[in-house]
Design a protein around this nucleic acid. Structure first.
Lengths: 131, 131
DNA sequence: TACTCATTTAGATAGTTACGAAAATGATAT
DNA sequence: ATATCATTTTCGTAACTATCTAAATGAGTA
């Protein structure tokens, strides 16, 4: 779920991108400086979005917004195998968005906080406005 | 950028997921009914998040939040080849988040609206609270 | 026209992902 | 103990992605 980084990715020096000054050195430096503040958190934000960039996982989150559910219930809602369902639940839980509760052989999952669902709904609303 | 769908993905019937009634038929039906309202837009939302689930594209969006920039400038900010930069700009533009402006042999890109950046910053803030 | 250069496109490749199938785990019940 | 069953894990596979390299495009210029 982390960003793909080509191991063999060579560092590109400015002169290799453009031979001639098609670019504004100062402007680029200024933008880079501004970005450096946020830059640290961008990979984290990208991983967050990567997690959400899957219809199955979104369905799980919306479903759990209604009620705590066991793996088997979720699998039925998704019409997906329990193995695949469990796999996606693990991803969501590993990034801290779900909590699990063991009850005998059943395992129940629930949202860790409502903030995530609020963000989802906010973004969905923004998307509607945009299209 | 669309959701990966196994072409050979077989439809799984309820009986194949769980042989015995480990699941609550009525609860599942209720959740499914509630989901069906949102369900239509979830693939679209997933594609949106998929687009944002990449540090390079996020950097582009934050950079363009500061100022309109040409491909070459953006490539320098990213320290990435112009080809790869152009490729990512195309993705963002195709989903309607960027506009381009031709000026001679230069091409300038800018954000289509500030709403996207607002959403990004909102999600980033939520992420900070969460961690 | 021929040349230069910014940008885009095409092709190749290494890495990632989502799923099903099947094996492993862990808990209850007989 | 043995069986059963919900869940998790492992593994293999098909599909997708991000980047590079190299070629193509398109605009300005000598």
């Amino acid at each position: 779920m982390s960003n793909p980084v080509k191991t063999s990715s060579p560092k590109i020096s400015p002169s290799e991108i453009c031979k001639t000054p098609c670019f504004d050195q100062d402007k680029v430096a200024a933008i880079k400086a501004m970005l450096s503040t946020e830059e640290e958190r961008l990979p984290e934000l990208a991983d967050f979005y990567k997690l959400l960039g899957n219809t199955t996982r979104l369905k799980i989150l919306f479903a759990l917004g209604e009620s705590e559910l066991c793996v088997c219930d979720i699998a039925h809602v998704l019409e997906l195998s329990t193995a695949a369902t469990s796999h996606q639940l693990k991803s969501l839980r590993q990034q801290g968005w779900l909590r699990k509760r063991d009850d005998g052989k059943m395992v129940y999952y629930r949202l860790h906080s409502v903030d995530l669902l609020k963000a989802l709904k906010g973004d969905l609303e923004m998307l509607k406005q945009h299209s």
